[in-house]
Simulated assay, not measured.
Amino acid sequence: MSKSTRCQARVDEYWQGCGFLSPVQNDKRCKAGEVQTAPGPSHQLGQKKENAMTSRSKKMVGYTIEMPCPCGHIYVTVNFKENGGVGEILSKLGKSGGCASAIVNGLARVASYALREGMDVQYLEKAVIGISCHRNPAWDNGEMVTSCLDAIGRAVREAKSLHEEYHVQTHEVGQAANLLASSAA
């Protein structure tokens, strides 16, 4: 079996979902018709998982943050699930169209899909805060915002802070109401 035939067999197997391919070819030669594979995840590539995508919650509470960025202003909406975790991120660059707008919207979509599947939002923050672009930075309350992606990370962090603050205040008001009700009884 020639090298090109062996490689084609590996590609065919990949697309058929027969096994998870090792990115590094083993030095050992395959027997005719045999393809080397590495152990794969519990669901093999090419095979559809039972619940391929967790559905979006019907109701979410969120915050929209306007953040300056090198391209102008970006509006980031962070929606929270009932359990308090971030469930969805939406973004809109102040100017319509263009490559930057497409990148900002694409990041928000991919992040929302990952959040639905259980990713912790701190990984998104860590990944995008600090990314810079070729434009001059913008300033937000004394902090330098170095790119549109940096602005999204900062807006998510600010929305989480607002959400936690709101829940602490709501919890304190609830406790005070319970104390008043128990002392009146």
Rank of each mutant, 00 (worst) to 15 (best):
V168W: 12
A151M: 02
A155S: 07
M1S: 09
G33Q: 07
R56W: 09
R6M: 10
G118T: 02
K28A: 15
H171E: 14
K31R: 14
L21Q: 11
A32P: 07
K59T: 08
D120L: 05
I131Y: 01
L149I: 10
V24Y: 14
F20W: 15
A159H: 02
P137H: 02
K92S: 10
Y123D: 08
H134V: 06
A138F: 06
V110L: 11
L179V: 13
M144N: 02
W139S: 10
A108G: 04
G97A: 06
R6D: 12
E143I: 06
Q25A: 13
V104A: 08
Q25P: 02
P23Y: 06
E82N: 10
V35I: 08
C69Q: 01
N178E: 14
E13A: 15
E143G: 01
E50H: 09
S101T: 07
A177N: 13
A177H: 11
D150V: 02
S22K: 04
A176Q: 15
I129T: 06
L162N: 10
C69N: 03
Q25F: 09
Q122G: 09
S42D: 12
S101K: 04
P137D: 01
G33S: 08
C148V: 09
G40V: 03
T77H: 05
S96K: 15
R135I: 09
L90K: 09
G87C: 00
C18F: 13
Q25S: 09
W139E: 11
Y166W: 13
K95D: 09
C99W: 10
G33Y: 04
A38S: 15
A184H: 12
A181F: 13
M67K: 04
S183I: 14
D27E: 10
M67A: 03
D140G: 00
I89V: 15
C133S: 06
A100H: 02
H171F: 13
L180W: 10
H43Y: 13
P68R: 07
Q16T: 06
I65W: 00
N105L: 11
S22E: 06
G46M: 04
S22T: 03
E143R: 10
G85C: 11
S182I: 11
Y63F: 11
N51F: 15
